[in-house]
Design a protein around this nucleic acid. Structure first.
Lengths: 124, 124
DNA sequence: GTTACCAGTATCATTGATGATACCAGTGTT
DNA sequence: AACACTGGTATCATCAATGATACTGGTAAC
């Protein structure tokens, strides 16, 4: 085995390892943001919607039940903060955490894809 | 209403429209790549895995049934091409289409997120 | 001849995610 | 008084996604 062959073998051997790591990373991410609503809620809150009904109105098709469940889960997992203010009337606000913001890249890429896809469909 | 106010009003009015478009784009994308396996299969094939068992081995946890279903569906939707070669023994190969490649950005972002996430968990 | 690989299909069971609908207590609006 | 809005909860139903397991028909290796 000459030097080049050794180098090649190294690449071949190391490649599957990288692949495994990437597959695992992908699976983790899919697990965290899986489901029909999670990313939409994150996107909505990051876009400035803070009130329950406001968020609900911004996401076509979501029911109060699903939104309620997701918000609770996301609060438990530090994705958002829930704040209750007692003035004349009760005021509930949801705000994003830094952790939540870390999905920005994924969301932007998905929005880009969705827009391009719609363009292609239109043309055809 | 002065010029500045007019400009501001324009922004306020245009913003909800952009939001709606983006929500729709997001929903489209989630619909297309939804589910536990779709992106993983795309990733696997784009990484050079072409044979059924090869793809299966590269994705921890997937069953033959799920892989079979997904591959069929993806073929029907032009995401991949299925090629059968008849030599001494039958050879089936799956290859990505250009359309399939368009998910690259999303996948890369998700891998990045997953890796960072694992780092954070480790540190804590 | 037994074991193992390939590319799947078939059948059944489960369950998690989602939907539909109604409801509650409080405040404000007409 | 009647209606609408707020931030949800409760209950029930359903369905799509997934899992488990077994099996098939052909080739090749030991």
């Amino acid at each position: 085995m000459n030097e080049e062959q050794i180098k090649k073998a190294g690449e071949i051997l190391s490649d599957p390892r990288n692949q495994k790591e990437e597959v695992q990373a992908l699976q983790d991410t899919i697990y965290v943001i899986g489901g029909k609503w999670r990313l939409l809620i994150i996107n909505s809150i990051c876009n400035g919607n803070r009130r329950f009904r406001e968020i609900q109105r911004s996401i076509p098709g979501i029911t109060t039940r699903m939104l309620s469940r997701e918000l609770k889960d996301m609060e438990a997992n530090q994705l958002i903060k829930r704040t209750v203010t007692q003035t004349e009337t009760v005021l509930v606000e949801y705000t994003e955490t830094d952790y939540c913001m870390s999905f920005g890249g994924i969301i932007l890429e998905m929005i880009r894809w969705g827009k391009q896809h719609r363009e292609k469909i239109k043309q055809a």
